[in-house]
Simulated scan of single mutants.
Amino acid sequence: MPQHHLRPAGLPPVNGYSHVVAFGGRMAAVSGQLPLDASGELVGQDDPREQTRQVFENLSTALTAVGAGVRDIVKLTIYLTDLADLEAFRLVRDEYISREHPPASSLVRVGGLVHPGARIEIDALAMIPG
């Protein structure tokens, strides 16, 4: 039976989705995370590094709620509104993700995201240790 975690402490409000769902005993799917803080405010208005860092912090918070962490991610899907932000994304990503054992990844350039000031969104699949 899936375990739906609508809003783990520290993540922004939701509207019709769970931030993270654990399933199959050892898998977790994390909804697309935006650069929003716990109150739903945009972080890093025009700073792609700060936005990316907030997104990875949100991924970490969601995964912690199901007993996993960012090093347990097996698949990332990254949505960027501007490919000029790719280098900033990569620099911050490498602070969180193992360079020796990186997850599978897809990158998509999009025309916009649900929050008009967001430059990046990331969703993830992770293995729950144990």
Rank of each mutant, 00 (worst) to 15 (best):
Y79D: 09
D46R: 13
Y96T: 01
Y79C: 10
P103N: 04
A62G: 03
V92H: 02
R71E: 15
E50C: 02
P102R: 05
Q54H: 06
S106P: 00
A88R: 02
R90E: 15
V70P: 11
I97W: 04
L76I: 12
Y96C: 00
S106F: 10
H101Q: 12
E95A: 08
L63S: 04
P48Q: 02
G111M: 00
D82E: 12
L107K: 08
S106Q: 13
P102Y: 00
R71P: 00
L83W: 09
Q45S: 13
L80I: 08
L91E: 15
R90Q: 15
L91N: 06
P103F: 02
L76D: 08
R53W: 08
V55C: 01
D85W: 06
V70A: 04
V66P: 11
L91G: 08
V110H: 06
P103E: 02
V70L: 03
R49A: 15
L59H: 01
T64C: 04
V110R: 09
S98H: 06
S98A: 12
L80D: 10
A62R: 02
D72V: 01
T52C: 11
T81Y: 03
V108M: 11
R93L: 05
Q54L: 04
L86C: 05
P48T: 01
L80Y: 08
T52P: 09
R90Y: 08
D72M: 01
D46C: 03
E87F: 05
A88C: 03
T77E: 14
Q51Y: 02
D72N: 15
L107Q: 07
A104K: 14
P48V: 01
T77L: 09
A65K: 04
Q51E: 07
S105V: 11
A62M: 01
I73F: 02
T64N: 12
E87I: 09
R109H: 10
E100G: 00
I78L: 15
E87T: 14
F89A: 07
D82H: 12
D94S: 14
V110Y: 06
D94E: 14
L63N: 05
D82L: 07
Q51I: 01
D94R: 13
E100P: 00
R90V: 12
V66W: 10
P102N: 04
I73S: 07
